[in-house]
Write a protein that binds this DNA or RNA. Sequence first.
DNA 1: AATGAAATATGGACATC
DNA 2: GATGTCCATATTTCATT
Lengths: 150, 150
Amino acid sequence: MLDDLDERIVHALAGDARRTYADIGQSVGLSAPAVKRRVDRLRETGAITGFTVRVDPAALGWQTEGVIELYCRPHTSPEAIRRGLERYPEIVSASTVTGDADAIVQVFAADMRHFEQVLERIAGEQFVERTKSTLILSPLLRRVTATPPA
Amino acid sequence: MLDDLDERIVHALAGDARRTYADIGQSVGLSAPAVKRRVDRLRETGAITGFTVRVDPAALGWQTEGVIELYCRPHTSPEAIRRGLERYPEIVSASTVTGDADAIVQVFAADMRHFEQVLERIAGEQFVERTKSTLILSPLLRRVTATPPA
DNA sequence: AATGAAATATGGACATC
DNA sequence: GATGTCCATATTTCATT
């Protein structure tokens, strides 16, 4: 598992993934090479899966965000759902869930008309029986990772 | 708005935010300084809000993920919800929504016991009337940003 | 894990289209 | 107005201790 230094390095990278290793090292009390070794190890072990950019959906033209719950036909496998959904560029995340629905899908669209089109296309998939959609009004919090409980 | 080159630069950074400007330039057909200038401009205009690390929640010790729908007391403002939720380190995102619930909250917990504790604490907040929670079974897709419709 | 050296990337200044 | 080239500086990366 991760020790305290690893936690702090991940936290520093979560805040700004382009900070230099020397800079991070100063925050956590290590030299730049020592930080790099730990980051390399975190990548090897899979704790860190990559580095990415944080974008403002609205600034990129995505004005409408929503969550679509999928009720699938009996005996639809998670893999079948994944294959069916992966060609939608508007889908940002999808997961199978407990409860009434089988999966929840997070969608970004340019506007309401676009959202409706995506919804109708998804609802028309062979494995989808019905959908229930919810629109995001305004984001309150957005973080990269949960922080340690204590 | 963003032109085609900007889109491709953002896409390249979404895939790996630590790629060098020279490397990105080769992909999109620009020199390194030209790429940097565009990235600087994208940050200034707010299209890019930062760079971050992509982590594997499970590898970091978060085995249990869930979504909690919040039904709030009448006249609870979005800002009050935000203030109430921001001190929970287990909360990764929260948004106000249309539909029956007032907000949806995405939570990572170490295990089921931990998730239950977080749920009970959130349900005990003054502004929360009741909650409805759903557990994530398995993630099917996870992306940084929607890609252009065409 | 730190140090120091070599390779590489960044980020200006300036000229060009 | 945006891009390319050049160059000084800063950073990464690797060998050594």
